[in-house]
């Protein structure tokens, strides 16, 4: 490949990924905010906490947090799915923390501390994902209720994880120039042409699949992340005796306005 051709190619991919990142971020942030707004304004007219439920607001916070952090109800219903889910989500958190090094300069010290562990977190994440995919395929009852999107989401995450692990463990990339590219995207200096993206196929595959993930996030089952906080059967206080629960619209019907 000639020097000029290589420069043109770099310019193309740099612009392509920069524009894609801007669009994906807009859709992701805007979409998730819109969904949260939607969830927050959807009426929950009935008092329906799954019993036994906490009797105080504080208790509800503990309950929702234990659901979000420990997946408590899943633990009670199915131990091995809980283990796979925990492996995937816990490792994902570690991997995300590790990736912050590409977006911060100087790198925050706690990120630098977690960084070496995140590498192996990536492998745990892949194991969890493979387990969850296996669950969909092997268990007939789950296979029956699985839609194409259920599989595709797992496969997309597997593509992201596999390409990432390959870069960590097999075909390394130029992370210094990649970080400079990413910073230039963040600080809107990417079109200056000073910080081209390194062209490594595996990196481009990794980034493209992350962009796809960001775009489909607000339209997919991945919304369980913000959605879990709005689950009426978990976020309500058991005080139906102490306090009468009336939906605003019901109250309007009850009391004549004039």
């Amino acid at each position: 490949m000639g020097e000029v051709e290589k420069d043109t190619l770099m310019g193309f991919w740099t612009a392509f990924f920069a524009i894609s990142f801007y669009l994906a971020t807009l859709l992701f942030v805007g979409g998730v905010i819109y969904r949260i707004y939607q969830y927050a304004t959807t009426p929950a007219p009935l008092k329906v906490p799954t019993m036994p439920a906490p009797m105080t607001q504080k208790g509800v916070i503990v309950r929702v947090l234990s659901e979000v952090v420990l997946f408590r109800s899943l633990f009670r219903s199915n131990k091995w799915i809980w283990l796979l889910g925990m492996m995937f989500h816990g490792a994902l958190l570690l991997v995300i923390v590790r990736h912050l090094r590409y977006f911060t300069e100087p790198v925050w010290s706690w990120v630098a501390l977690a960084q070496p562990f995140g590498k192996y977190g990536g492998l745990v994440m892949l194991l969890g994902l493979l387990g969850l995919l296996g669950r969909r395929i092997v268990i007939e009852r789950i296979r029956y209720i699985s839609n194409p999107s259920d599989y595709l989401m797992l496969i997309l995450l597997l593509v992201i994880g596999t390409s990432g692990a390959l870069m960590s463990f097999v075909t390394h990339i130029d992370i210094i120039h990649f970080k400079a590219f990413m910073l230039s995207v963040m600080y809107l200096d990417v079109f200056s042409g000073q910080y081209p993206i390194p062209i490594d196929t595996i990196l481009l595959v990794h980034l493209a699949s992350v962009i796809v993930l960001m775009i489909i996030f607000p339209f997919s089952k991945l919304l369980h992340a913000p959605g879990v906080f709005f689950s009426p059967s978990r976020n309500q206080v058991d005080n139906s005796r102490e306090k009468r629960h009336v939906a605003p619209w019901a109250l309007e019907l009850e009391t004549p306005k004039n």
Binding site: I176, Y187, L188, Q194
Partner: peptide, 13 residues
């Protein structure tokens, strides 16, 4: 986006 651009230090490499 603008707040990021305003806070932009020059990009280090």
């Amino acid at each position: 986006l603008l707040s990021l651009a305003v806070s932009a230090q020059s990009i280090t490499i």
